Amino acid sequence: MRNLLYICLFISATIHSQESVDVALINSTDLNVDQIVSIDNFETFYYLKDNTIYKQNKNGTSINYSNYQLGEITTANTFNPLKINVFYQDFNMVVILDNRLAEIFKIDFNTIQPYKNISHVSTGFDNTLWMFNVDFQQLELYDYKTNKTRFSAVPVQSLVLDLESDFNYCWLLTENYLYQYNYFGSMISKIENTGFTEISKSNGHLILKKENTLYFKHKKKEDITPINLPKLLINQFLLTNETLYIYDLEKLHKYQLKIN
């Protein structure tokens, strides 16, 4: 009986022990942009420079979009490359672009009813956006074609730090918790935030940043594990499948994540 207890304790300690996730450097390239938006599986590169969003193909050709009348671009989301959303928080507006970066829809939250004061925007399925409504302190799934809110979450009690989504899920990072919702609006997980400030996602996996360290959360596990990286400035990071990109304001570093 005592031996069985020791075995159980050993297994429990092994399961809950925190191991690091290793990476392998693929390459580092010089880069001078204001913000990386995304890099897809075909190495199409979206970035912001001088308040303009650029789409650069692997062969080097590029197109761009700008609308200086709307102020500074707050965020851009290219998860659905046929319906790219560009958020201008100062004017409380979102512009939807097609794959040629041509305008196909404008959403002015100042003029629609009911009025929405938005701080974060991310892509939803179909014609929807995940948005955080500051006035009500709640996450909303909004259909911009019908001007209807399909879902409103229970209000949160702490500052929202980041918002990420795909067609199936949405992750809301606040100072207190990391929430995950499905596209029906049901909260499926709630994890205490121990100091994380930013997130990036791919295929349900998450990368989280705490100070100048990155952590990995597997889509099927609750554990958040540190990533074993060399010392470098992490100005920006993003995940594409199992490829981790880190931008240090001078170079873009490309790593292969070794996920078990």
Rank of each mutant, 00 (worst) to 15 (best):
S62G: 05
K258F: 09
D40W: 05
I84R: 11
T146W: 12
F79Y: 15
T52E: 12
F87S: 05
N212P: 09
E140V: 12
E72R: 14
S17M: 13
I227E: 00
K58S: 07
N127Q: 10
L172E: 07
V33I: 14
F132K: 08
Y245N: 04
S186E: 11
Q69H: 03
I7R: 06
L249K: 15
V86H: 11
S66K: 06
N57I: 10
S12L: 07
T128S: 10
D98E: 07
L5A: 12
F91W: 03
K190M: 03
L5F: 09
V33D: 08
N147L: 02
R2I: 14
T29Y: 05
D30R: 10
G185Y: 02
F151P: 13
E242K: 11
F45P: 05
L239D: 02
S202N: 01
D248V: 09
V33Y: 14
E198P: 00
I36S: 00
L232C: 01
N77C: 06
N127F: 15
Q138M: 04
F125Y: 06
N59E: 09
N133P: 04
F167H: 04
S158K: 05
Q157V: 09
A13G: 10
L70F: 03
I53P: 04
L178W: 09
I107C: 05
K201L: 02
K148S: 11
N59M: 01
K148L: 12
Y54K: 10
W171L: 08
V160Q: 05
L233V: 13
N41H: 03
Q35C: 08
Y68A: 09
Y47M: 01
D143N: 11
M1S: 13
N168R: 07
D90A: 15
F167M: 05
I96S: 04
H205M: 05
T14D: 05
S20D: 14
K148P: 00
D50V: 01
K217D: 00
S62K: 14
F167Y: 13
K190T: 02
T44P: 02
N57D: 08
L5H: 06
Y46N: 02
P230K: 08
A76E: 10
D30H: 10
S158R: 02
Q35E: 12
D135C: 00
A153D: 12
I7M: 04
Y115L: 08
F10S: 11
I224D: 01
K83P: 00
S189R: 10
L178V: 04
L232V: 02
Q56H: 01
L257N: 03
N59D: 15
K217E: 03
L141S: 00
N99T: 15
K209V: 02
T61A: 05
R100H: 13
P230F: 13
I104P: 13
R150P: 02
Y6Q: 13
F109D: 08
F184H: 07
Y54V: 08
L249G: 05
F132Q: 05
I227G: 02
L232A: 04
M131G: 01
L206C: 07
F109K: 05
S12P: 00
E43S: 10
K219V: 01
S122Q: 03
Y245F: 15
K254T: 09
N260Y: 10
N235Y: 14
K209D: 03
Q18T: 11
A24M: 12
L239E: 03
S189I: 00
L249V: 00
L25T: 10
V154P: 01
N228D: 15
L238P: 00
